[in-house]
């Protein structure tokens, strides 16, 4: 399992926002993406997860290796915690949801409908989904939003355990997770107006 990003450029709403992003991520590593709001962290992660095409450069990884978690948790409010998690486990062809529940301290909430959870509990459930995917590369967009300090510790532990099992994580976040991680600041990769390739440039 290795993620290799070479000279990647991405666009949002028809505008190029990042260019020339290159990095590699190996098994056992954590890479944290930094950068001011609007720099394009979310867009970059979506491109790596295969949800939108890159403007230039390329991403080399096995698409079957990625588990993606966005701002929205994708929870169904009328299903219980257990049902939500079991559904994703079945989609990814795994069966055991108990470790995921335990890792994010959700055992006591297992039968509660997702609509009755607090924001932080929902987030924990969304993150527990990562564990049932059984996939090695986690691509996470602001995973700690609305988590309290103890939940952040739970999350950091989960990432650490994941890396120990040979996984890797690419995380866009602003807070310090206390993890052994590399840091990539996206600010220098902001796209300049000149280097837009064939885009709407054709109309100028």
């Amino acid at each position: 399992m290795e993620l290799q990003v070479v000279d990647l450029g991405v666009a949002r709403g028809g505008l190029p926002i990042l260019q020339g992003v290159s990095f590699t991520l190996e098994a056992g590593q954590v890479l944290v993406l930094r950068g001011p709001n609007g720099i394009g962290k979310t867009t970059l992660l979506r491109a790596i997860a295969g949800l939108q095409p890159a403007l230039s450069g390329h991403v080399s990884l096995d698409p079957e290796a990625v588990a993606y978690a966005a701002h929205a948790d994708g929870l169904k409010s009328t299903l219980s915690v257990l049902e939500n998690l079991t559904f994703w486990a079945q989609v990814y062809g795994t069966t055991d949801v108990a470790p995921a529940l335990q890792a994010f301290a959700l055992q006591n909430l297992a039968d509660r409908p997702a609509q009755n959870l607090s924001a932080g509990q929902k987030r924990r459930l969304g993150l527990a989904r990562l564990l049932v995917t059984g996939r090695p590369l986690w691509v996470l967009d602001e995973p700690t939003v609305s988590l309290d300090a103890s939940a952040v510790t739970l999350f950091a532990d989960a990432v650490r355990a994941h890396c120990a099992r040979g996984g890797a994580a690419l995380i866009a976040t602003h807070i310090d997770l206390g993890l052994q991680s590399d840091l990539l600041d996206l600010t220098p990769f902001k796209a300049t107006a000149m280097a837009q390739g064939d885009f709407d440039e054709a109309f100028l």
């Binding site: 979506r46 997860a49 949800l51 079957e64 978690a69 966005a70 994708g74 989609v91 062809g93």
Partner: peptide, 16 residues
């Protein structure tokens, strides 16, 4: 509904 709560993104990256 799946688009609004983000499930559609997650399903699109799932092995279906």
């Amino acid at each position: 509904l799946d688009f609004e709560d983000g499930s559609l993104d997650l399903l699109a990256t799932a092995p279906i």
